[in-house]
Design a protein around this nucleic acid. Sequence first.
DNA 1: TAGACAAAATCAGTATACGGTTTCTGTAGG
DNA 2: CCTACAGAAACCGTATACTGATTTTGTCTA
Lengths: 235, 235
Amino acid sequence: MLKPSDNLVDAIYADLRLKLQRSAVSPTDRLVDTEIANAHGISRMPAREALLRLVSEGYLVGTTRGFAVRELSLDDISGLFEVRRQLEPRAAACAARDMTPEIEAEITAAMNRVELSLSQSDIPALLAANVDFRNAWLKAVNNPHMAATISRFIDYFQSVRLGTFADPATAGLYIDGLSRIHAAFLAHDPLMVQDRMTLFMFAAEEAYLSVRRRQLQEAATARPARRRIQKRGTA
Amino acid sequence: MLKPSDNLVDAIYADLRLKLQRSAVSPTDRLVDTEIANAHGISRMPAREALLRLVSEGYLVGTTRGFAVRELSLDDISGLFEVRRQLEPRAAACAARDMTPEIEAEITAAMNRVELSLSQSDIPALLAANVDFRNAWLKAVNNPHMAATISRFIDYFQSVRLGTFADPATAGLYIDGLSRIHAAFLAHDPLMVQDRMTLFMFAAEEAYLSVRRRQLQEAATARPARRRIQKRGTA
DNA sequence: TAGACAAAATCAGTATACGGTTTCTGTAGG
DNA sequence: CCTACAGAAACCGTATACTGATTTTGTCTA
């Protein structure tokens, strides 16, 4: 690890970002600069700067005791999906139009891995394959600003995604939508991709909302009213 | 100055961000952490972190000699507008639907200032009023993620906007589109707002492209082939 | 005058240090 | 057993210092 670029901050950032995408950081975890620093054998500053960047991008929040993954409110989920609905169907349609055979193969490979890991109930693998599928089709999006924005908005959900896949029924529905999109990609039909992505967006929003609602309820019953995460807003 | 929050980084960041929005930093300027630091009477690190944040958000690029405002390629402009086209018409429609009388007054006030400064050829005031108009209607957008994303995408154009307003003909067309949007807001017609914003997006894209094209040509003739701005990508 | 080359300056990246605030822990008292 | 409080620890924010890379500047030579 620690390869990307000659820059320590970028390296740490990439490492953390990957961990976040893979849901390898739980909301109860606390990321502390000094820990990360001497885990990588470097000083505090690069680690700190990487963390700060993740905060300014909205993935983490600063607490008085280390950095934590940002937890989404129900409003956050609705709002984020409103944006995703505007962008992803259109972007996916572009991808379908401009797809190369190589990328098509990548998408298919990712889809296969998704289905395999679903059948084996291998959640971590499912998570990873899911990320791969998304990254694969985003590669065919020629507009880097569009792709980056979409990537970012998807990554906000990392803390909820785990919960979505944990429930077999929800996961099944989710994967079903994904495979319909995949089929549309194979048909090279931009409009079909667009429509199915739109449908998928609504289904995904529902799924995330219901999972998060349940999470919040459980949390509320578990601890009547505690916890404090303040300081340093999302900018 | 230097008020926002008890945090030096945020303060510097807000200060710089405002300067950028106002096009108060030219592409030939170089922002250096040490300079900013002792201009504000603080140490390098907060200034540096603010600059780094602006880099990671895509407003600045790091060079081997200070930080500079990011210059947009023609492809950047097209790409950014593709995203804006997906988001702003929809968001403006929401704003029209949810507008309060207070915000409506703000929008009108900003519009008046836009027209006044245009008639007086006061470019800085025009720039500021333009920012105000945008911020006013964005206030009526209930989805903070949507509003933040739009704000960000608009701000990318700060380095080109100056050129757009410098040409009276272009500026006139631009303001005309704006006033049509304003009228639609006053009519409280979300659909009319949406349509006019869509139209405006295309007109604005054309304007920015032609201004930038001219800028690039002039630069090319001025210096046959020089300049180097590398190191530290947009992330 | 133009080119080569060395010395100096500039600036980003990284490391280390210190202060202050919040949270945790352990102990004493109810 | 629970609460109150004092001390300790954790951790963020900021400052300062060092290093190495790159660019600029100045000088010398053809």
